[in-house]
């Protein structure tokens, strides 16, 4: 992964330079230009920068079409994404120079604000694409999402079978835990996952401690405060089938906790990686609408 181009370093950051040249040229022209009155979008430079900006916005939005055309050989997808990122960022300068830094409560400034929001969400997208895939790969640890889902179903079955052998209360706790282990769900839950294996583990632990107390009452005074010590104790004593089941149950629950945590993190990372697009794309279309209104209106009442 590290040896491959990212969208920022594509072709030696070619589009960074393209964007920089565009911005510097615009700034130089803006400083050199001495318009009638204050700088604004209605001067020849204003129209020029406005045309560049509008064409850029339309072209940037075409990325949504380009990325669906897998057979397209007009540049690589990575190249398009790289140009999209750099030229999209350059748009901030182009737009402000176009307007001569004038803002107001009108459709024109609304278009500017929408554009800035789109760019800001896009910047988070760049961050997400650079950061989260590596985190996802590391988190998955050579397994797949389907394998994790299958394993959880399997572990739930095992846990129920083991719990049934121990005590109805433990069985009910495992049932509850299984029921409450939510994978996915609402968008919010994907981004902020919750996992309920801990409550089952706690209940099993409480049950063990209770048994321990009973045993101590029976004259077994050995002090074994922790659950793990208890499991050791139970196994070392070659305990009866109930103890054996308990030990296995703890193993199963621990494993389930590991898998569900990993899966929830996997889902969370994917959601984080995608969530900005749900802002970026709709706001882009809002921008397209506001931009159209902006262009038509300034020439309508010329």
């Amino acid at each position: 992964m590290s040896m491959r181009d990212s969208m920022l370093s594509f072709a030696g950051a070619r589009y960074l330079w393209v964007a920089l040249v565009l911005v510097v040229a615009s700034v130089v022209a803006y400083l050199w230009h001495d318009p009638i009155g204050v700088p604004n979008g209605g001067t020849w430079l204003g129209y020029t920068l406005g045309t560049i900006g509008a064409l850029l916005i339309v072209w940037l939005m075409l990325l949504g079409i380009r990325k669906r055309r897998y057979g397209n050989r007009f540049g690589t997808m990575l190249g398009w994404a790289s140009a999209h990122v750099y030229l999209g960022t350059a748009l901030i300068a182009i737009a402000f120079l176009h307007s001569g830094f004038q803002v107001g409560l009108n459709i024109h400034t609304l278009a500017l604000v929408l554009m800035l929001l789109v760019i800001a969400s896009g910047m988070f997208g760049v961050f997400a694409y650079l950061r989260y895939p590596a985190l996802m790969t590391r988190n998955r640890d050579n397994t797949t999402r389907d394998a994790m889902l299958d394993e959880i179903v399997e572990l739930d079955q095992q846990a129920l079978a083991l719990a049934d052998a121990v005590d109805p209360k433990i069985h009910a706790a495992i049932l509850r835990s299984n029921e409450r282990t939510q994978l996915g769900g609402s968008a919010w839950r994907l981004l902020r996952p919750r996992e309920d294996t801990d409550s089952a583990i706690d209940q099993v632990r409480a049950f063990l401690e209770q048994k321990d107390a009973e045993k101590r009452k029976d004259g077994q005074t050995r002090d074994m405060p922790t659950m793990f010590a208890m499991v050791d104790f139970l196994s070392s004593r070659a305990a009866d089938s109930k103890n054996e089941a308990l030990r296995k149950l703890m193993d199963v629950l621990a494993r389930k906790k590991t898998v569900t945590t990993r899966l929830a993190r996997d889902l969370q990372l994917q959601a984080l990686m995608e969530v900005w697009l749900y802002v970026h794309v709709p706001l882009s279309f809002a921008l397209l609408g506001a931009l159209t209104a902006h262009i038509v209106s300034v020439f309508f009442y010329w």
Partner: peptide
């Protein structure tokens, strides 16, 4: 299980069209 944002009911398309229409309505 709803494992992605799309499965969780978030959409891009209908919001996009709605906002585009809203802007064209207000702005034009």
């Amino acid at each position: 299980p709803r494992l992605t944002l799309t499965e969780a009911g978030l959409g891009k398309r209908r919001w996009s069209w709605a906002l585009l229409a809203l802007m064209l309505l207000l702005g034009l």
